[in-house]
Design a protein around this nucleic acid. Sequence first.
DNA 1: GTTTGCATGTAAACGGTTACATGATTGG
DNA 2: CCAATCATGTAACCGTTTACATGCAAAC
Lengths: 176, 176
Amino acid sequence: MDVRTICLGILTRGDATGYEIKKTVEEDGHRHFAEASFGSIYPALNRLTEEGLVSVRAEAQEKRPDRKVHTITRAGRRAFVASLMEPLPEDRHRSPFVFAMLFADLLPKDHVSRMLGAYIAHTEEKLSRLQQADAKPRREGERFADGLVTAAYAAVLDYLRIQRAKIETTAAQAAE
Amino acid sequence: MDVRTICLGILTRGDATGYEIKKTVEEDGHRHFAEASFGSIYPALNRLTEEGLVSVRAEAQEKRPDRKVHTITRAGRRAFVASLMEPLPEDRHRSPFVFAMLFADLLPKDHVSRMLGAYIAHTEEKLSRLQQADAKPRREGERFADGLVTAAYAAVLDYLRIQRAKIETTAAQAAE
DNA sequence: GTTTGCATGTAAACGGTTACATGATTGG
DNA sequence: CCAATCATGTAACCGTTTACATGCAAAC
């Protein structure tokens, strides 16, 4: 999803500054399937404002840049819903880790082992944060999304734990 | 993974033209976690050649551009292994579908239903092609990667089938 | 005392995609 | 007859990341 649409979506849930949008995208409810950096959020918000899909009010602050609080307009809401209604781009998944595992036979065994360990730990951590998030009440859409991501991660973890030994055996035994 | 590294990796399995590399990346063994287009493969291959990580021999063909068959060099192999040994970039997953589900409450119920149906069908298709691929013998790394992707898709499908009704209920009942 | 949080923005660079150009052959 | 396969390449464009600029306050 492009940053434009991400911004609009987050603003349907309430007013926000660019800074707050960034924080929201980094939360577990979003970060597993969407991304946006400052460098793309701020220009997107300005363009959206020019186009009348968003309005801004500046809140003055001392010794700090003004907070620019953005509100989605009625036109913005319409545009957002319309963009969700037209054919969605396909999912895109990139995993350097899985790609690397394709070539386990070319890598030293202990390195493969470390990669697996790190990836498993990393996935466990994501899972446990998702499960914490599951406690507090959320909109149904968020519950659904978190649940889906949780199911996927849990399945991957299961697989990794069971198959780990087998792929490690494939690795080159010694070597540089 | 950048296209450079993808090209090198595929070439460790045998000589290939840019065209063949593209085809390989599009196969089930790769496409679920790596991508590359012609516009990035051809320049990458040329740069790799300049750098001495790859060598080329042109095979003349009538009425068609020469096949430029690329072979990875010893330096190329070393560079490839080295790139897999240094800290891997994180996985990146983008799912416009899951993002859209976050806002199911803003969309007409029948549209949400269609989106779910399409996504489920799409995932089923991926799964069945992976399971077919599972029949023919492959390198252990490929078996591992396919298995992992299969496990993830299967879990997602399960979740979708069970939760579908619940998220549909969340959708706005009527109209645009 | 250093890191983190708050808060905005720009410019350059990067990596990649899309569309185009070219064109024969084979299969449906 | 049209679509797909084979085969390479370029140029324009696009969205994004990275680094920079600025700077106080609070927490550790």
